[in-house]
Amino acid sequence: MTDLLKENKLLDAITTSFKIEGKVIRDHRVEVNADKNTVSSILLFVKNQLGYIHLAHMTCVDWIDQGEYEMIYTVYSPVDKITLFVKARIDREKPIMENIDTIWDQANTYEREMREMFGIEFPGLIGEHDFILEDWDQIPPMRKEFDTHKYAAETFFTRPGREDAKDVREEINKRSGAKVPDFAKKYSRE
């Protein structure tokens, strides 16, 4: 079994400098929970001092019941081969988050997409507003209250017979007037 020495050393280095909590999930995976105002200082610290130079991913999860967005930054060190998650929570009604464009250039793309899909504001972010969608006039589409099936049924013309979640065998037999055979009844939904 691996002894998780490097992972514990990394966790101690961050938690003692910044007074935050975290844990070692398994080998090669460590996570820390930070406040939203200290995220950029933690990322600068691990990038310059500890060698976590590869920004692997940046994502956002919409917890609608708790009224918050969770931002997760995934960084990786090619020397230690450990993946570190830095997590922060922001308010869902007026989401504003720091812009880490100056630390990694590729974060510009992730932040433009999140501005469009979730409605998060990043002060100081340059780049055209429309990245993926064109002439979009509804609420940001990845929020949980946006019903995509209802929007698609109203805007685009649907062919008859294409409604949601119907049993294919029953529908075909209803149209031609035959009965469902016995061997097929065990796959039926009832």
Binding site: A56, H57, T59, V61, I72, T74, Q106, N108, T109
Partner: peptide
Amino acid sequence: EIGFHVTSDGGNKPYRVHVKGAAYTHGVT
């Protein structure tokens, strides 16, 4: 490198799946 970030809340549908392909950084930045 392809990365998948999967979040589950204990139900029978995925809560959030976010995919990162290699072309995301190569093609834009």
